[in-house]
C-alpha cells in the first residue's frame, strides 16, 4: 500500500502551518524569515505531489514551477537577511517588537 496524494497534502499543510506558527509567534526577525521559507517549501511539496499524481506526468510543469519557486525563495532569503543586517546596524536590535518607529 503506497501513500496517496491526500497524505502528501496533509504533510505539506502541516509544514505550512508550522511555518505560519514560526512567522507569527517569533520575535526575532531571522526566524520570521525561516517561517516564510518553510511555508514556501510546503507549497513546493504540493506542486511536486500534484505533478507526480497527475494523469499527464510527461509534462514536467510541477517540477518547473518548483525549480523557479526555489530560485525566487533564494533571492527572497538573500534580500531579507540583508535587510535584517541593515536594520541591526541602525537600531542594534533584531527584535521586531522594538522596531516601532513608523507606528502612529
Amino acid at each position: 500500500m503506497s501513500p496517496t496524494l491526500q497524505l502528501f497534502l496533509i504533510v505539506s499543510a502541516a509544514l505550512f502551518c508550522i511555518g505560519l506558527l514560526a512567522a507569527l509567534s517569533r520575535r526575532h526577525a531571522i526566524f520570521i524569515l525561516i517561517g516564510i521559507e518553510m511555508m514556501l517549501a510546503g507549497a513546493n511539496l504540493n506542486f511536486i505531489a500534484f505533478w507526480r499524481f497527475s494523469s499527464e506526468p510527461h509534462q514536467p510543469t510541477g517540477v518547473m514551477i518548483a525549480i523557479f519557486s526555489i530560485a525566487i525563495a533564494a533571492a527572497e532569503a538573500a534580500v531579507g537577511l540583508a535587510l535584517v543586517i541593515s536594520v541591526y546596524r541602525h537600531y542594534r536590535t533584531t527584535n521586531v517588537d522594538q522596531l516601532d518607529q513608523l507606528k502612529g
Binding site: 508550522i18 505560519l20 520575535r27 541591526y88 542594534r92 533584531t94
Partner: peptide, 20 residues
C-alpha cells in the same frame, strides 16, 4: 553577525499559535 542583541528568543506569541 547580530549576536550581541539577544542570545535567546524570549516571549512567545500564543495568538500566533492559535491562528496556525
Amino acid at each position: 553577525l547580530t549576536r550581541r542583541d539577544v542570545e535567546k528568543d524570549r516571549g512567545f506569541n500564543w495568538s500566533g499559535a492559535f491562528i496556525a
